[in-house]
């Protein structure tokens, strides 16, 4: 299961960021695929990105004049969320993959969660509300233009997949680096270092997309099903779960990313992937 998931994550990341010309020349893809959003957090300023980031696109729509509802992006989120829930996070998100790989580095004593997890886990909802929604809808930049606050002040995915490769290949952009870049670089380095010790800290505590897809977990089509009557209560699933979820929380919890570690660990075979009934 681990190998299958890693293969899917790698293939998905390579396919959705397959514009190799961009990496070589410090430019981005400008074709028609950018009319649509990918399911995961994938900066559209990544030189290889073939489609749009749903959080970036949501902010682009909220940044318009007036206070209109961003139907198109809500549509993408409802479609992806209803089908997969946070399966997207576990299997399709490039920044999730990066954190997974860093967590495999055999350094530090590994932790599943940060201290004060039960408070900190609400951070992603705060980011969604304050930076993505309110920040983009109501706050104004210096020239009275609305700003994509999440992308501008927080998004480490944009820094890693967008800024670093673009700045490496594009001298014109490199000459414009200022304090904001170093602020974002600091956030990126902090999250990447923390990922070595704690499992997916950005996904657990800060990702607005995880907050949205978590809401769909309870009723999405793809589910991990736990058969209570077969369960022998050995708790092997909870020990294997990188997010430390109890068997009754698997799949329905907004935190479950459907990685399948519980399924693999269960000696009674009472956990399996399935569709919602």
């Amino acid at each position: 299961m681990k190998r299958i998931r890693l293969t899917v994550q790698l293939l998905y990341t390579i396919i959705t960021n397959g514009y190799a010309y961009g990496f070589l020349n410090g430019k981005i893809y400008q074709g028609n695929l950018k009319y649509v959003c990918v399911p995961g957090l994938n900066c559209y300023s990544c030189p290889g990105a073939l489609a749009s980031c749903p959080v970036g696109a949501l902010q682009a729509l909220l940044n318009r004049q007036g206070y209109e509802i961003p139907f198109a992006v809500l549509g993408f989120l409802f479609v992806f969320g209803s089908l997969m829930g946070r399966f997207v996070c576990g299997w399709l998100c490039p920044f999730g993959l990066l954190q997974d790989l860093l967590h495999k580095i055999p350094l530090f004593h590994k932790r599943k969660r940060l201290p004060f997890h039960y408070i900190l886990k609400y951070g992603k909802y705060a980011v969604l509300l304050l930076l993505v929604c309110i920040g983009s809808w109501f706050l104004f930049g210096g020239s009275f233009a609305k700003i994509p606050a999440f992308c501008k002040y927080l998004c480490p995915s944009g820094t890693f997949f967008g800024a670093l490769p673009l700045l490496a290949a594009n001298e014109g952009l490199r000459s414009q680096i200022g304090p904001l870049f170093f602020w974002k670089l600091g956030i990126l380095i902090g999250i990447l270092c923390l990922s070595i010790k704690v499992y997916r800290p950005f996904c657990q505590y800060l990702c607005p997309l995880g907050a949205v897809y978590g809401w769909f977990n309870r009723f999405s089509l793809v589910q991990i099903r736990w058969e209570k009557e077969k369960c022998i209560s050995c708790m092997a699933c909870q020990r294997a779960c990188p997010l430390d979820l109890k068997p009754e929380e698997i799949s329905v919890s907004p935190e479950c990313i459907r990685c399948g570690a519980c399924r693999e660990a269960c000696p009674a075979s009472c956990i399996h992937f399935g569709k919602h009934q």
């Binding site: 400008q30 749009s52 998004c155 820094t159 870049f181």
Partner: peptide, 12 residues
């Protein structure tokens, strides 16, 4: 938005 380099996204 997506076909222009997003200067906010890359920290510029």
């Amino acid at each position: 938005k997506a076909v222009m380099i997003c200067l906010e996204c890359i920290g510029i």
